[in-house]
Design a protein around this nucleic acid. Sequence first.
DNA 1: TAGATTGTCTAGCGGTGCTAGAATCCGGAG
DNA 2: CTCCGGATTCTAGCACCGCTAGACAATCTA
Lengths: 194, 194
Amino acid sequence: MSIQTRRERERAERERLIVTAARELAEAEGWDAVTTRRLAAEIEYSQPVLYSHFKGKGAIMAAVAVEGCAELAAELRAARPAARDTRAALRAVGKAYTAFARRRPALYDAIFTHAVDLPFATPEAPAALWDAFNELAAAVKPVAAEGDDPGLLTETYWASLHGLVTLMRSGRLPEGAHERRLELLIGHFAVGAD
Amino acid sequence: MSIQTRRERERAERERLIVTAARELAEAEGWDAVTTRRLAAEIEYSQPVLYSHFKGKGAIMAAVAVEGCAELAAELRAARPAARDTRAALRAVGKAYTAFARRRPALYDAIFTHAVDLPFATPEAPAALWDAFNELAAAVKPVAAEGDDPGLLTETYWASLHGLVTLMRSGRLPEGAHERRLELLIGHFAVGAD
DNA sequence: TAGATTGTCTAGCGGTGCTAGAATCCGGAG
DNA sequence: CTCCGGATTCTAGCACCGCTAGACAATCTA
């Protein structure tokens, strides 16, 4: 049993090595630079080793996405309780969310733009994803009017943040006015609450 | 002069042929299917011909994007005047925008997610892009509170629509609830106006 | 120590965007 | 009508991609 467990441990360690290397490479040079050859060289193994751990490049990105999502959830969680009223809570998570996207663009892309083979919006979705969503939901819930589905409202607020982030990061919205756009968004979502 | 003009005309025709073929191929099978080889075969010329017209694949996508943007602008323009009040106008352009994205996903991606080498949010941006933006702006302007920059508010509404569309199309938001999310968004943007 | 099993690597497939240089076509001069 | 020069188009190839079959090496079992 000892040998088997040692092998499994070594395998798990190497798997983490792969995910970490992919993440660092992506954060340093973008996902375009993360090729299977480059990644293999980085971990000092040959290409096929990657495929003995993951089904393909997409699966590696998905693993990075889950890891990154935990980080996002943690940052949202840290930001929310500091707010005193509901508007401040909306602002806090909004700022934390967009700040994460700007500070860790590769991570954000892995979670929310690239890797499609992650289950979303179902119970099978990764726990980290639900954690992040629930942080948003906790901030959004107080502004839900009677008859509004809080979950749907959270999705809507999330989508708005996502739109701001992606359009800005792709150069379609000027970065300079980001704070003001975010404030406008919050203003329209927080109306009726105080 | 006659020969020269004929050649220029033929060149222009072929350029349109390229853009049209790229667009049709993308709409039929997605942008992944639009390779330079495939596109060359489609127009019955060799690959290098593409590069005598466009700097690269990105430039071809940009040309398709501009063309598609004119279509989007036309659909937004057609939708707006039918609305009687400001909330209905917001709803009309919102529905038209998201309907376009769902009906012509390849076109939408060319305009708003892929091709980055198009100038946005500057006077140099393609006229069709400004047309589309101005249609949105016309619907948004009436809901701008005193002190709100109508342009920024339009950008924010646009970003929200974009977020809804992209998250839905990538499978991160369930499609079924789209209409309700859109209604929630409109409700929060149209508040105070009627 | 011999054999079986597990793991890893080398080499290669079919594909991508893009380009240098050869081949071809065509209008205009003699 | 012929032949030349320049513009145009094609063939062939580069370096890279994700991915994999099959040869090889290392390790454990008996």
